[in-house]
Nucleic acid binder design. Structure first.
Length: 952
RNA sequence: GCGGAUGUGGCGUAAUUGGUAGCCGCGUUAGACUUAGGAUCUAAUUCCUCACGGAGUGGGGGUUCGAGUCCCCCCAUCCGCACCA
C-alpha cells in the first residue's frame, strides 16, 4: 500500500511526545485561547466511537487556533470518582483505585491512538489527593461563606457574625445564645450547610442523590427506585445564586436549546406572596398553632398563612385553598370532625414513593380540613383543603386555587365538586358558564371579569393593580420564586472526596485548611456498616485529633480532643465543578490555581461536550465558578464562554431473521414474505459488512448458530438494520481501536467529522468510511509519483491550480470558524479530486494544503510536512495559509438563464457584462427561441454574477 | 401539557445574505485494467416519461420576477421539563 498509515501514525505520535509538541506555557506574547472537552468518567467498557466525536471537533479547533498564532490550552483529565467502580468493588473486593487506574490507562491508550493535541502534563484526576485537596478546600470556603442578599454575593460568615454581635433583626438574641444555638443559626446561612431535608434516597445504591440524578423517580445510574426521606445531609445553597444563574445565560454563547433547558431547570417565576387570614370565628380553637403565620404588617394581628401565586389577577376567582400534606398548619386548623380523615390522608400521602406519586399525577386526591380562610379582597370564606398536588418544596407549600384558570385546580374542583368562577375572559364580554367547560382557561391574556376593581383591565395590568393593592394593605408583596433546589452534597458512598469536617457534640467543625487534603482512608468492605453507617464507618483510622491536627484511630475518640470525622463523601459533581480552573495551574500545591494563571487564561473560550449535562454539571460548574468569582478566585463570572454540544452517536444494529418454523433457518431480508414468520435477532455488527452477513463468522459466533442454514439472495445474506442506542447488548458497539487499526487515526478523525454536523445526533454507520480512506490515498498520491517516491515540483502553479487552493483555503477557514467540519471534509475531497485531475504536484499548492489538512489529519500532514521541509519543525507550528481574493477572480461568469423562474439553460458571459448586453445575449441564444418565441419579455431581472430571469 | 430542535434521493448529507436543489461520500449499475479482487480507474445514478417535457426539499396556503431558505396553519419524529401554583 502506498499510503502507509500504520507506519506514519505511531512515528509522529512518538515524535510529538518526545518533542513535547503539545506542551503549553502559561505565558506568551501570543493571544490565549482555551479549548476544553468535558472530561470522561473512565468506565470499564473503554471508549466507543461516540466519545471521541467531540474530542475530535475540539482538537481540530485547538490545532487551527494554534496555527493562527494563538497560545492554546487544550488539556484532558479524568472524572475518576464514581459509582460504577465502587459497585464493582462491592462485587469483587477490588479497590476502586485499582480498577480506576486500569480504566484510565486503557482510556489513555485509546486516546493516544487518535492523535489528540492534549497537553498531558496538565492531566488531572478527581480522585488524586493533590487534586481533591482543592475540592475539599472549596467546600470549606462554601462552609465559611454566606450569601449577602444586599450585595448579591458571597461574603465570609465572620462578617455575618460581626453583624449579629452588633445587633441584627435576623438574630436578636445572638449575644445570649449558646455556641450550639449559634452554630445552628449559622447553618441557615452557610453556602454549604447541614440540614434535615427531604432527600432522594436510593436504597439499592445505599445513598442519597441530587435532583438531576433522579429521573421519573428512578436513579439515573442503574435505574433503581428513589424515595423521599427526611435526612440530615450536606447541601449547597445553589438556590442563592438562582437569579445570577439565569442572568448569566445572557452573556454566554450557548445554543438556545441548552439555555432553555437551564432556564426551565432554574424555573424563575414572578408573582405575589399573599397572606390569607384564617376565619377566626369558625376556628377559635386553633388560634395558638396559627400564630406563627401572623402577617407582619396586618392592620390587626390575625392568624394567617402565606401563599405564592403567579396569577394575582385571578384572586377574585379563588374558591378554595390547598395546603401540601407536609404543611405545619394542618394539625392546628383541622376541625375535630375531620381529624381522622385528614390524618389518614396525610399519612398516606407522605408515605407514597416518588415513583408512585409521579406515576399517578393525573389521579386527583385530597381532603377538606373543615376550616376556612378569608379572601382578603372579597372577604369571602374559602374552604381549606389538603392535597398532594401542592408540593412542599415550592413556594410556601400552600396555594390559592382558581379552578377556572388553572388546569390542576380545575381538575381538583371537578373531582370534589367545588365551585368554579370565571374571572378572566378572552374578550371583555366573552363570559360563559364554567360548568359547561371541558378545561380551564390558563392563558395569561384577555381581560379581568367579575373581579371588583380590576374588572375590565387587561390581565397584565390587573396583576400589577392587585399586587399594588395587597402591598398597600400590608398583606403581601411582589416576589420571585425559583424551581431550582439546593443541591444535596452528601453521598453515603466510599469512592468520593471525604468531607474535611469533624463533629463536636453533633456540631460540624471544619478541619484547618493547612491540614488538607484529608485523604480517603482504605477500608475493608465497601458496603454500609451493620449499624447502617456509610462505608467510611468501616475505617479504623478515622477520627480527628484537634490538638495534634491529624487523623487518628477511632478508638481514641473522647469528644474532648479527639472527635469523629464525617462519614459521608462528596458527590460526583464535586470534583467536576472546578476542574477547568485547575488545568490552568495543575501542579500548584499552594493554591487551587495562581492568580497569575487565571488572569492569563481567564475562562474557557470553547467547551465541547454532551447536552445531557444541561441540568447537572453545567449548573453546578457555573455556580461553583460564580462562588469562586465572589471570593476573588476566578477571573470571570461565567466559566464557559462558548459551548458546543456534540450530538449523541447512536448505534446501527444489524439483524438476522430466524424462521419461526425452523429455528436453524435464516432468511435473507428481502426474501421474507411475512414479517410475523420470522424472529429478528441482533447480530454483531463486526461480522456484517455493508449489511452483508459473513456466514462463516456467524456460524462461529455462537454455538447455537453452528449449523445454521440460510436462504440467500444472489448468494448473499442481507441483514436488516435499525437505529438504536449504542450498547453491548445490541451488539452494535463500534470500538475506535478497530477502526484505527484498519484505516488509521486520520481516517477515523476525518470520517467522524464527515458524518454530519457535530451538534446533530446521528447513527454510527461504518459504510462510508471507505470513501474517506480513498480520499487519503488520493491525497497521498498528490505528493508522490507512480513508484510512491515523494515528488513535488517547484514550478509556478497555474491559475487554475491556485484557484483551487484558494477556494479551499477560503472554505475550510470559514467552515472551521463556524464549526462546520463535515463541509470542510467534502471541500478537501473536491480539492484533491481537482488537483488530481490537473496532475498538480506544485510545491506552492501542496505545502499550504498540508497545513490546511493538519488540524483534521495531523499524522499524514506531519509526514508530508517533513517531506516538504526537511528542517521545518512540526506542522503544528506552521502558519495557516491566508486566502487571497485575487486568485478567485474570473473574467467570465456562467449565468443561469431562467424563464418565469425556471432555469432553462446557462450562458457564459463576461464578468463585467451589463444588463443590456446580457439581454441581447439571451435573445441571440438559440435555446431562448423555445421559451421566448416571438414574445417580448415583460420583465427582466438581471443580478450581476447571480442570475438572469426573463418574465414573459 | 409546556419548552426546544429537526423533517431534502436507496443512505449520511450540501446549498453561509431569497438567485442553477441534490455538492461530497456511501450504495447501486455499466465499462476498463486484471489469474483474481472487497484494489484502481472511467461513466451513469431524485422521481415519472422512449422522448419532448413534467413533478419535486413532511403537508396545505401566502409574499416574491424567483422560496429548501421569509410569513401563516397543520402533521411527524427526536430531545428536555413535567402537579413548580
Amino acid at each position: 500500500m502506498d499510503y502507509n498509515f500504520s507506519e506514519i501514525e505511531p512515528k509522529w505520535q512518538r515524535y510529538w511526545r518526545e518533542q513535547k509538541t503539545y506542551h503549553v506555557e502559561n505565558n506568551s506574547d501570543k493571544p490565549h485561547y482555551y479549548v476544553l472537552d468535558m472530561f470522561p468518567y473512565p468506565s470499564g467498557a473503554g471508549l466507543h466511537v461516540g466519545h471521541p466525536l467531540g474530542y475530535i471537533a475540539s482538537d481540530i479547533y485547538a490545532r487551527y487556533k494554534r496555527l493562527r498564532g494563538f497560545n492554546v490550552l487544550h488539556p484532558m483529565g479524568y472524572d475518576a470518582y464514581g459509582l460504577p467502580a465502587e459497585q464493582y468493588a462491592i462485587q469483587t473486593g477490588q479497590h476502586p483505585a485499582i480498577t480506576t487506574e486500569r480504566n484510565i490507562n486503557r482510556y489513555r491508550e485509546q486516546l493516544d491512538k487518535i492523535g489528540f493535541s492534549f497537553d498531558w502534563d496538565r492531566e488531572v484526576r478527581t480522585c488524586d489527593p493533590a487534586y481533591y485537596k482543592w475540592t475539599q478546600w472549596t467546600f470549606l470556603q462554601l462552609f465559611n461563606h454566606y450569601y449577602d442578599e444586599e450585595l448579591q454575593k458571597a461574603r465570609p460568615v465572620s462578617e455575618l457574625v460581626a453583624k449579629f454581635e452588633k445587633g441584627d433583626d435576623r438574630a436578636p438574641e445572638w449575644n445570649t445564645m449558646s455556641e450550639r444555638e449559634r452554630q445552628e443559626l449559622l447553618m441557615d446561612y452557610r453556602l454549604a450547610y447541614l440540614a434535615d431535608i427531604p432527600v432522594n434516597w436510593c436504597a439499592e445504591l445505599g445513598t442519597v442523590l441530587a435532583n438531576d440524578e433522579v429521573v421519573n423517580g428512578l436513579s439515573v445510574r442503574g435505574g433503581y427506585p428513589v424515595e423521599r426521606k427526611l435526612m440530615r445531609q450536606w447541601s449547597l445553597r445553589i438556590s442563592a445564586y438562582a437569579q445570577r444563574l439565569v442572568d448569566g445565560l445572557e452573556q454566554v454563547d450557548w445554543s438556545d436549546s441548552l439555555k432553555e433547558i437551564q432556564r426551565n431547570w432554574i424555573g424563575r417565576s414572578e408573582g405575589a406572596a399573599v397572606w390569607f387570614p384564617l376565619d377566626v370565628k369558625a376556628n377559635a380553637n386553633v388560634l395558638p398553632g396559627a400564630q406563627a403565620y401572623m402577617p407582619e404588617f396586618a392592620p390587626e394581628p390575625t392568624p394567617s398563612f402565606e401563599i405564592f401565586t403567579t396569577r394575582p389577577d385571578t384572586i377574585f376567582g379563588v374558591t378554595f385553598m390547598v395546603l401540601c400534606p407536609e404543611h405545619e398548619l394542618i394539625e392546628s386548623i383541622t376541625t375535630p370532625d375531620r381529624k381522622a380523615e385528614v390524618e389518614k390522608y396525610v399519612t398516606w400521602a407522605k408515605n407514597r414513593s416518588e415513583r408512585e406519586r409521579q406515576a399517578e399525577v393525573k389521579k386527583v386526591s385530597g381532603v377538606f380540613t373543615g376550616s376556612y380562610a378569608v379572601n382578603p379582597l372579597t372577604e369571602e370564606r374559602i374552604p381549606i383543603w389538603v392535597s398532594d398536588y401542592v408540593l412542599a418544596g415550592y413556594g410556601t407549600g400552600a396555594i390559592m386555587a382558581v379552578p377556572a384558570h388553572d388546569s390542576r385546580d380545575f381538575a381538583f374542583a371537578r373531582h370534589f365538586n367545588l365551585p368554579i368562577r370565571q374571572v378572566v375572559a378572552p374578550e371583555k364580554d366573552a363570559v360563559s358558564d364554567p360548568s359547561t367547560w371541558s378545561e380551564s382557561i390558563d392563558a395569561k391574556t384577555g381581560y379581568s371579569v367579575n373581579s371588583g376593581f380590576i374588572s375590565g383591565m387587561k390581565v397584565k395590568d390587573a396583576m400589577k393593580a392587585v399586587i399594588d393593592r395587597i402591598e398597600d394593605m400590608g398583606i403581601g408583596h411582589r416576589t420571585v420564586n425559583f424551581r431550582l433546589r439546593d443541591a444535596i452534597f452528601s453521598r453515603q458512598r466510599y469512592w468520593g472526596e471525604p468531607f474535611p469536617i469533624y463533629y463536636k457534640e453533633g456540631v460540624p467543625y471544619p478541619i484547618p485548611e493547612e491540614c488538607l487534603p484529608l485523604p480517603l482512608p482504605d477500608i475493608s468492605e465497601y458496603k454500609p456498616t451493620a449499624t447502617g453507617e456509610p462505608p467510611l464507618g468501616h475505617a479504623e483510622v478515622w477520627a480527628w485529633n484537634e490538638k495534634e491536627r491529624k487523623v487518628v484511630s477511632k478508638s481514641l475518640i473522647d469528644n474532648t480532643s479527639v472527635f469523629p470525622l464525617e462519614l459521608s463523601t462528596m458527590p460526583g459533581f464535586a470534583g467536576s465543578s472546578g476542574y477547568y480552573l485547575r488545568y490552568m495551574d495543575p501542579r500548584n500545591d499552594e493554591a487551587y490555581f495562581s492568580q497569575e494563571a487565571v488572569n492569563y487564561w481567564q475562562n474557557v473560550d470553547l467547551y465541547v461536550g454532551g447536552a445531557e449535562h444541561g441540568t447537572g454539571h453545567l449548573i453546578y460548574a457555573r455556580f461553583w465558578n460564580k462562588f469562586l468569582f465572589d471570593i476573588g478566585m476566578s477571573a470571570k463570572e461565567e466559566p464557559f464562554q462558548k459551548l458546543v454540544n456534540q450530538g449523541m452517536i447512536q448505534g446501527r444494529s444489524n439483524f438476522v431473521y430466524r424462521s419461526k418454523e425452523d429455528n436453524r433457518l435464516f432468511i435473507s431480508k428481502n426474501l421474507i414474505k411475512d414479517a410475523d414468520s420470522v424472529t429478528p435477532i441482533h447480530v454483531d455488527i463486526n461480522i456484517v459488512d455493508n449489511d452483508v452477513l459473513d456466514i462463516e463468522r456467524f456460524r462461529a459466533w455462537r454455538p447455537e448458530f453452528a449449523d445454521a442454514r440460510f436462504e440467500l439472495e444472489e448468494g448473499k445474506y442481507i441483514c436488516g438494520w435499525e437505529i438504536e442506542k449504542m450498547s453491548k447488548s445490541m451488539f452494535n458497539v463500534q470500538n475506535p481501536d478497530d477502526l484505527v487499526a484498519k484505516y488509521g487515526a486520520d481516517t477515523l478523525r476525518m470520517y467522524e467529522m464527515f458524518l454530519g454536523p457535530v451538534e446533530q445526533a446521528k447513527p454510527w454507520d461504518t459504510n462510508g468510511i471507505e470513501g474517506v480512506f480513498r480520499f487519503f490515498k488520493k491525497f497521498w498520491r498528490l505528493y508522490h509519483d507512480e513508484n510512491n517516491s515523494f515528488c513535488v515540483d517547484d514550478a509556478e502553479p497555474s491559475k487554475a491550480e491556485m484557484k483551487i487552493l484558494h477556494q479551499t483555503i477560503k472554505k475550510v477557514t470559514e467552515d472551521i470558524e463556524r464549526f462546520s467540519f463535515n463541509t470542510s471534509v467534502s471541500t478537501f475531497m473536491i480539492c484533491a479530486n481537482e488537483l488530481d485531475k490537473l496532475k498538480c504536484n506544485k510545491r506552492a499548492v501542496l505545502e499550504p494544503l498540508a497545513v490546511l489538512v493538519a488540524p483534521f489529519a495531523p499524522h499524514i500532514a506531519e509526514e508530508l510536512w517533513h517531506l516538504l521541509k526537511a528542517d521545518g519543525g512540526s506542522v503544528c507550528d506552521a502558519q495557516w495559509p491566508l486566502f487571497e481574493e485575487r486568485y478567485l477572480v474570473e473574467d467570465s461568469f456562467t449565468y443561469p438563464v431562467s424563464f418565469n423562474g425556471k432555469m432553462r439553460f446557462t450562458l457564459d458571459l463576461p464578468a463585467t457584462c451589463t444588463q443590456e448586453e446580457a439581454v441581447a445575449a439571451v435573445k441571440a441564444a438559440p435555446e431562448a427561441q423555445k421559451w421566448l418565441g416571438d414574445k417580448e419579455p415583460k420583465k427582466i431581472i438581471f443580478v450581476p454574477k447571480r442570475i438572469i430571469n426573463i418574465v414573459c
